[in-house]
Simulated scan of single mutants.
Amino acid sequence: MRMAARPLAWLLLLGILLVTVLPIEWRPVTGEPANLERLVAFALVGFVFVVGYPRHWWLVLGLVIAVALGFELAQLLAPSRHATLKDAVVKVAGGSLGVTAGVAANFLFTRLVPR
């Protein structure tokens, strides 16, 4: 599972980057509030990264936070986008929740599944 999670995590991160900096009209529409989309996207990335790199969860947390802030700042370069502190906080919160859930899942998996 770890080996599949690693490329998936990087692909998810690339997908979020593209959705973040491409023109707003190219952004997929789910019908959900944008903040919920941000929260869930970064939570998923954080979770999958921790599953892929379970011994480095603290580096994953730093990566997710840095990427959330970096992607938000990258929107300053896109004419049709805008960066806000609120959006950055939502992204950081989502990533942190995902990392926490991943750490908990790894802990439970190692305790409950016999080798």
Rank of each mutant, 00 (worst) to 15 (best):
W58E: 13
P28D: 08
L73I: 13
L11Y: 15
A9D: 06
G70H: 06
L85N: 07
G70A: 02
G52A: 09
A4S: 06
P23E: 09
K86E: 15
S96Y: 11
I16S: 08
H82M: 13
L18T: 09
V99I: 07
V113D: 08
V48D: 01
P33F: 15
R81T: 15
V19F: 08
F49M: 12
R27T: 10
F71L: 14
H56I: 15
L108T: 12
V60R: 03
L18H: 08
V67T: 10
F71M: 10
S80N: 09
R111L: 11
L11M: 14
L14E: 04
F107S: 14
G70K: 03
F47M: 01
F49R: 01
I24Q: 11
F49Q: 03
R55F: 05
G94M: 11
L85Q: 03
E25P: 02
T84N: 02
V64Y: 01
V67Y: 12
S80D: 15
G98A: 04
E37F: 06
G31V: 08
N106F: 04
F107E: 13
L77W: 03
A68T: 10
T30V: 01
A43D: 00
K91G: 04
N106V: 08
I16H: 06
V60W: 02
E37K: 07
W57T: 00
A68K: 14
S96I: 12
M1H: 10
V92P: 12
G98F: 08
R38Q: 11
L22S: 10
F42D: 03
A93Q: 00
L17F: 07
V89N: 01
Q75L: 12
A88N: 05
A78V: 02
G46W: 01
L36Y: 08
R2T: 08
P28T: 04
R6F: 06
P33G: 10
A68L: 12
L13P: 08
E37W: 09
G94L: 14
V45D: 07
W10S: 08
G31Q: 07
W26K: 12
F71I: 11
P7G: 10
P54G: 07
G95E: 03
L22K: 10
M3W: 13
L13V: 09
V29P: 05
F42R: 02
A4D: 04
V40K: 07
G98Q: 03
F71W: 14
R81V: 05
M3G: 11
F107T: 13
T100K: 02
A101P: 00
W58F: 13
V60N: 04
V90D: 02
D87G: 01
